[in-house]
């Protein structure tokens, strides 16, 4: 079958897709986007987390056919996604005055979002998303296999909860397994990203 959907702001068409293929397989093997990882393919580890119409999902549990006409953001597009969100937030803050809690990404906003420039597809060139930079700075990356899924999940959490407690962070990231770090540096990274986000406002 043929599946048409949007990935990181770009319309994509995948041909000859088997009915049994997952979104994860199509991203990795058909669209050349291997950033989302294949660690358990059972929805237990969160390494394949992407946003589907704004909602974080395990892409291994989404059948490719289910994404027809929908919008997907992967780790490869996270930096540009975060940049445009920040720009939009700045505009809204300027026009509406104070805005303390971000409401998250509405479906319409998620669909309307477009990647800019040729680099965002490969994740090259541009600035990193704040959560990506925080993971590097805090030492939250070791082998890095869990990192893409954690970044997508943590970025989504900070969108909804700009000032999370430690318990909030743990709850939000409890679907993402990491075997290297013992999670402490991941906690540090999320706290760091939240603090920097707070400073920027």
């Amino acid at each position: 079958m043929r599946v048409n959907f949007t990935v990181n702001g770009r319309p994509q068409e995948a041909d000859d897709v088997w009915e049994g293929e997952s979104l994860l397989y199509v991203l990795r093997e058909r669209l050349g986007l291997p950033g989302s990882k294949n660690a358990c393919e059972q929805g237990e580890c969160g390494s394949c987390t992407v946003r589907l119409d704004g909602v974080p999902v395990c892409s291994c549990l989404v059948a490719a056919g289910q994404v027809e006409g929908r919008d997907v953001v992967t780790v490869e597009g996270l930096a540009e996604f975060a940049r445009q969100r920040a720009e939009r937030d700045r505009c809204e803050t300027a026009s509406r005055g104070d805005r303390t809690a971000a409401p998250g990404t509405s479906l319409d906003e998620a669909r309307a979002w477009q990647a800019r420039g040729s680099d965002s597809q490969a994740g090259e060139g541009g600035e990193l998303a704040p959560i990506q930079q925080a993971f590097i700075d805090a030492g939250a990356v070791q082998c890095g296999f869990c990192t893409p899924g954690l970044l997508v999940a943590a970025d989504e959490m900070l969108e909804h909860h700009p000032n999370p407690t430690d318990a909030d962070i743990r709850e939000a990231l409890s679907g993402n397994l990491c075997r290297c770090t013992g999670y402490e540096k991941i906690m540090d990274a999320v706290r760091l990203a939240a603090a920097r986000q707070g400073e920027a406002v």
Partner: peptide, 10 residues
């Protein structure tokens, strides 16, 4: 590793 570009064996 944070941009998804790092090429793992898989």
């Amino acid at each position: 590793k944070v941009t998804g570009e790092f090429a793992y064996s898989s």
